[in-house]
Amino acid sequence: MRRFPAAGARRFATLNHDALHALDSHLAADPVRAGLPAAAVRGRKVRLAELMGAEPYRALTGRRLVTPPSRPLPPELARAVIAAATRARQAGEARDSVQTSPSP
């Protein structure tokens, strides 16, 4: 059985165990697709090594590692933040459409 990283994540899964096993077997049988996950991991490791060569990324990573976990937003506060972001986005889209409209 596949493990899901977070409690409650299984309810978001849309495939059952047998379907996932069949899909994994099918992908593993294809020589081109079988190497894709390993290539993706190698690519991410190379990119991380490149980023860690730059001081701003090392500093950001260090700050991220020492920062305690955040707490989830209560639903009412989350709705307020989402509403503010939506209004700001709509105002920006309206402003952009006014600026890009041709002058008569």
Score class of each variant (00 low, 15 high):
Pro5Met: 12
Pro5Cys: 06
Ala6Gln: 12
Ala7Ser: 13
Ala7Met: 07
Ala7Thr: 11
Gly8Lys: 00
Arg10Asn: 03
Arg11Ser: 13
Phe12Ile: 01
Thr14Pro: 00
Thr14Gln: 15
Leu15His: 15
Leu15Asp: 05
Asn16Trp: 11
Asp18Ala: 15
Leu20Gly: 11
His21Phe: 00
Ser25Val: 03
His26Gln: 12
Leu27Ala: 02
Ala28Pro: 01
Asp30His: 08
Pro31Gln: 06
Pro31Asn: 02
Val32Tyr: 08
Gly35Gln: 13
Pro37Glu: 03
Pro37Val: 01
Ala38Asn: 02
Ala38Thr: 15
Ala38Pro: 05
Arg42Leu: 07
Arg42Pro: 01
Arg44Cys: 08
Arg44Trp: 05
Lys45Glu: 15
Val46Asn: 09
Val46Arg: 12
Val46Glu: 02
Arg47Glu: 09
Met52Arg: 06
Gly53Trp: 03
Gly53Tyr: 02
Ala54Thr: 11
Glu55Ile: 02
Glu55Leu: 10
Pro56Ala: 10
Leu60Phe: 15
Arg63Pro: 00
Arg63Asn: 05
Val66Ile: 10
Thr67Arg: 07
Arg71Asp: 01
Pro72Glu: 09
Pro72Cys: 13
Pro74Gln: 12
Pro75Leu: 12
Glu76Asn: 15
Ala78Phe: 07
Ala80Met: 07
Val81Pro: 00
Thr86His: 10
Thr86Met: 15
Ala88Lys: 04
Arg89Trp: 02
Gln90Ser: 04
Ala91Tyr: 05
Ala91Pro: 00
Glu93Asp: 11
Glu93Ala: 13
